[in-house]
Design a protein around this nucleic acid. Sequence first.
DNA 1: TATATTTTGTGATTTGTTTCACATTATATT
DNA 2: AATATAATGTGAAACAAATCACAAAATATA
Lengths: 210, 210
Amino acid sequence: MKQITKYIIRNDLKRLFTYRLCLIGFKRKGFDRVYSYNLGEEAGVTAEQVRKDFSVFKIKGNKKGGYKINDLLRSIEEIFKYQHNQHVILVGMGNIGRALVQYKRFILRKMIIVASFDIDPSKQSKRFGIPVLPMDMMSEIINKFHVKVAILAVPEISAQDAANKLVDKGITGILNFAPVILKVPDEIIVNNINLCDELESVIYYTQKVM
Amino acid sequence: MKQITKYIIRNDLKRLFTYRLCLIGFKRKGFDRVYSYNLGEEAGVTAEQVRKDFSVFKIKGNKKGGYKINDLLRSIEEIFKYQHNQHVILVGMGNIGRALVQYKRFILRKMIIVASFDIDPSKQSKRFGIPVLPMDMMSEIINKFHVKVAILAVPEISAQDAANKLVDKGITGILNFAPVILKVPDEIIVNNINLCDELESVIYYTQKVM
DNA sequence: TATATTTTGTGATTTGTTTCACATTATATT
DNA sequence: AATATAATGTGAAACAAATCACAAAATATA
């Protein structure tokens, strides 16, 4: 392992998500086509950047006519098409875990948390809309729903352990909320979200004269 | 506004956070000094990258002797020093908001959520350890605690509105969980966290042959 | 104390990304 | 139908980030 890239979302992909967000906004406002400079302005990038990004992802517009919003959204959807009705599991029903299982937007994007796991039996009995199961039922659920991706929201101290279990049982992608750099095989995708870092960055930049 | 940079955490800063995490890990394991290649290996970057980053932030090591972990941590702390005991407010007590006010790690990093706000009076009466107040008390709290940074965790539809209020009342940095590109003056720092995008990225990469 | 070894720190080089500039093409106008 | 206009699409140029390569310095060894 030489590069950290596998831990980081590529910038062009990130922008693609932003474009989608902007397009949905435009659509809501009643527009049905955009030009690269509209979209760029909205997303906070240059028009050239927008066109280059689209070019990378083979998205075509119409010379002089710009882009039809619906076509664009469909093209972007196409890039993520295999993700529809993706089954995901969640490990750790603490504050973050509980918020995520109730987070409606995942479902809108057809990402479905099929079950969550916690070592605490008292949490297993509680009702959150999805089953909260003991850790030893993980294999069963992963196999039953062909789960490839897990959300890890356990305390720091048990994160590596949980990650090992997940990888062992066939998980190949982890969205990790624990403030730990997980040691996993090279082929496993890890996306770390560190809420403290994110907040601290904002504070850092607001205090920095730029 | 030409560049999206103000919305994005600089990579070197992100790595600095990662280094800190690794250093804390090393320390826990009983080490008291590291070499750039130890830290690089742990953080998933090259040793040269580690040294270059430190050089950018004016962090000095000891030729042949490497870096003392405590010194390094202190230097990194120094970079973020003005952030100690930072007062933050939170807007929106939905799933995410509730998880965040109970999130212990903010306090460990001396970032304190002094109050949260919600339009729903029923939430205002509930107890979460910090006061949940009606929106019209925002000014009072911001002034009283000299708050500069807010966490925005309201539904998409009310996000821009809430952001306007925040900026109006003197907030200069926003950690935004709503899936919206906020329109704010150039000098305001916005850090967007889009949980759907983060999860979808993991799914994207796990399905992509790389 | 002199020499060998190891690691940092940083210019030089390479690699990657963004912006520029303009040829191409679709539409609008005369 | 011919001409003008306004947008895309993309190589070339400029810029930024990462890696390389090695001098400088601290420590270890003889």
